[in-house]
Simulated assay, not measured.
Amino acid sequence: MASFSTTPSVFVSQEEFNGFHAIDRELYTLLVITLFRDPAEAMQIMALWLWLEHKGFHNVVKKMLSLPHFLINELADEAVACLKFIASETALSHETTSGDNIPLIQSLMEKEISFQFFLDNRQMARLEVTEIVNEVCVRAMGDIMQQANQDFVLPPTTSFHLPAVQPRNGTTTTTAAAANNNNNNNNNGAIDRENGVHPDDRTMFITFSKGYPVYEWEMREFFTRTYGDCIESLHMQDVQANEQSLFARIVFRKASTIDVILNGVTKAKFTINGKHVWMRKFVPKRTKFMMQRQLPILPTSLFD
């Protein structure tokens, strides 16, 4: 197997090595310092993205650095799903291996990518992603990881085994007709201020399929028809006139609308005018307090 180390036969100083990986270090810093993601997990996420670049998906890191922070956080979540997928030995259905499960990663790439790609390259990915962690990421980002670890209170555990990937944490497909059946249980109207609910806690993140543009008027029409006057504000991705928005955020008037939409799962799939959209609760920038309570511990090598 070809080595992924960027160290040539001549000596390369740590400063030169860091300079070569400057944008990788920038993105890793954003993940662990700005977004407060688990430093060990984030290093494996970086290794996956670098592996994709080696596989012909060009400028992955550079593209991500141009995105809003909350979107980078969502992409990192999809990367974790990919890592769990290649670590799993479980046979998965065609629906599970489709690009529907990683819509943001699929939209970011210039060519098609889905869980099927990771399935076809699973064994190689295990070996090569681990090699990138050990030979590239540890050296290029180890000092940042050490700095980030100082900010976390880690729970007393020494290992973490990735579970077999599930179909996107209980993804459900919901049509307008099915959603209407729940509408009677949802009392929308006034802004949900009586309980002091912050707008972030009334917000959902929506992604669209690349090549199937969904417009703001379609979103408003669908949710107003299905759930009544429920939208406080809707924010589509800001793009050029000839480009497609790939994501949006909706702030609902009441937090309970989110519960009705998700109906007990973490991600819901809707069809709007024949085009698929995926909705999940918006996760704002993580706080150190949250991470101290929920931080998972991953081994240095993902596949140990």
Rank of each mutant, 00 (worst) to 15 (best):
Q147F: 05
V12D: 03
R25K: 11
L108V: 04
F205W: 07
F11A: 10
I191A: 12
K275I: 14
E112Q: 06
L295H: 07
L92M: 14
Y212W: 13
S88Y: 13
V80S: 03
L262Q: 00
A91G: 00
L30G: 09
L246E: 14
L27P: 02
R139C: 04
F57K: 02
P167I: 01
N169H: 14
D24G: 03
A179E: 15
E194F: 11
K267W: 10
M145E: 10
A268E: 04
D229C: 02
K281F: 08
A177S: 11
Q44R: 12
D304Q: 03
N183T: 14
F4Y: 10
A47Q: 00
A79P: 05
V80H: 05
S107E: 09
P296K: 15
T300Y: 04
F11R: 02
P299T: 06
K254R: 12
T266C: 15
T90C: 07
N263W: 08
D100H: 06
H58P: 14
S301R: 09
K210D: 05
F85S: 10
T171E: 12
K267M: 15
H54S: 07
E78K: 10
I113T: 00
T34R: 14
I250D: 02
M236D: 06
A42Q: 01
M219G: 05
R286M: 11
V136N: 02
E53N: 14
L162F: 09
A91C: 13
A178D: 15
Q116E: 04
M124T: 11
G19D: 05
P213V: 01
I102S: 07
C230N: 13
N101D: 08
D238S: 01
A2G: 10
E74N: 02
L302R: 02
F11N: 03
N186P: 00
L83M: 04
F70H: 13
F208H: 08
T158V: 11
G99K: 10
V153E: 13
S13H: 01
K55Y: 03
M145R: 08
V80M: 06
T90E: 08
N263A: 12
F205P: 01
Q150M: 15
N273A: 11
N185F: 11
E194W: 11
K281L: 05
G274P: 09
R280F: 00
K269D: 06
P299A: 07
S233W: 09
L92S: 07
Q237C: 13
V32Q: 09
S107N: 14
D192R: 09
H276A: 14
P167D: 06
M1H: 14
A87E: 08
L246K: 10
D100C: 10
A42R: 03
N73Q: 02
S301L: 10
F247W: 12
T97L: 11
N101Y: 08
C82E: 04
T29Y: 12
T175R: 04
A76R: 01
I191M: 15
